[in-house]
């Protein structure tokens, strides 16, 4: 069916849709200001740094997920999504911890093996989705379960301490007075940003996700970009594993579930903050930091621990509902 003439938005967005567009940001800023006035020490350099510190692993996996969403389109069911990234992060952490602590393998060799495992997962996901045409949501969910299973075998489902100086540096080190993890993550975000938004390859990847047909007409191969998006996503899982090891001073079983939840929330929340209303790198990063800030804020305010989950979940539903409402008002 040809595109109906009504798809043409009338001169500028209407007042209503502009209000709806601004609402998520207003709600979040409002919440943060409220928390700032009510939570002791919240508006302090220490807390800000804490927020950044705690959001580091989520930010890194969000980079991977946003790239997959950009390459595959933002339809949650049929579009691009990769739920296996947290599992990749956890298995890499497990491999490194197990080898370094329990078998005295040199750190570099352990890292190389972890990287190999991550690439294997990325390639499998990429091939299954692009070559076999499997649904990304189900494929990567199954991969998540499988990889977590293997992680349990590798670590015998036990906690393994790691005291390698490099990992300790990521945890406690500082660069220019700012936590090393935060600085390194910021550098990662900048590198990814350049790669996705400032290179031909990155722009083409976004085109493929935005409209598969448009990209094909322009001579681009959608499968190629989607495949590499999955590989890059697995790579971000590998990178995140270092921050997981640093944060936990080792590998603890069970960290993947929370990481996956926060990754998905932050990434799709980020879309509500981006001016183009699509998943972007900065949006995802901002989403991850805001989710961390809110949850720390609630804890600092002493909100009953039994209620925090409900408040967080409702806020996210509100933001997503507003995004859905905004696109309805526009059409």
């Amino acid at each position: 069916m040809p595109m109906p003439a009504s798809a043409r938005p009338e001169s500028g967005a209407s007042g209503l849709s502009r209000i709806i567009d601004a609402a998520p940001l207003v709600i979040f800023l409002g919440m943060l200001i409220y928390i700032g006035f009510n939570a002791p020490n919240f508006m302090s350099f220490g807390t800000m740094q804490l927020v950044l510190n705690q959001s580091v692993p989520v930010v890194v996996v969000c980079l991977g997920l946003s790239i997959v969403v950009m390459a595959g389109g933002d339809d949650v069911v049929s579009g691009g999504i990769d739920l296996s990234i947290p599992a990749t992060a956890v298995i890499c952490a497990g491999i490194i911890a197990q080898l370094v602590t329990n078998t005295d393998t040199p750190l570099l060799l352990a890292i190389a093996l972890a990287l190999g495992a991550a690439m294997f997962i990325g390639i499998v996901a990429g091939l299954m989705v692009t070559r076999l045409g499997m649904t990304p949501l189900l494929t990567t969910l199954a991969l998540f379960v499988a990889v977590v299973g293997v992680t349990k075998v590798v670590t015998s489902s036990r906690r393994i301490n790691v005291d390698d100086p490099f990992i300790i540096f990521l945890r406690d080190g500082e660069i220019l007075g700012i936590s090393a993890g935060v600085v390194i993550t910021l550098a990662l975000v900048l590198v990814f940003y350049h790669f996705i938004h400032r290179t031909k390859w990155g722009l083409n990847l976004q085109a493929v996700g935005g409209s598969c047909e448009a990209a094909e007409i322009s001579g681009l191969k959608p499968g190629h970009f989607l495949f590499w998006a999955f590989v890059i996503a697995a790579f971000t899982g590998f990178l995140a594993s270092f921050f997981l090891l640093a944060r936990g001073s080792g590998s603890s079983p069970g960290t993947e579930n929370n990481l996956m939840l926060e990754m998905v929330l932050a990434t799709f929340l980020g879309a509500a903050f981006s001016p183009r209303r699509v998943v972007t790198l900065w949006g995802a990063v901002l989403g991850a930091v805001l989710v961390a800030a809110l949850s720390i804020g609630f804890k600092t305010m002493g909100v009953n621990v039994f209620w925090t989950g409900l408040i967080k979940g409702s806020l996210i539903l509100v933001v997503l509902a507003l995004a859905a409402l905004s696109s309805r008002v526009k059409s």
Binding site: P2, M3, T199, K200, L203, N204, Q206, A207, G210, S211, E213, A214, A215, I217, S218, G219, L220, R276, R277, V278
Partner: peptide
């Protein structure tokens, strides 16, 4: 083509140069 096949959230420039970007 009859269908427009454009990415709604791309800019005009990004759409015009899709696949033949200047770098």
């Amino acid at each position: 083509h009859q269908e427009l096949h454009l990415v709604p959230h791309f800019t005009v420039t990004e759409s015009v140069f899709m696949g033949q970007e200047i770098t």
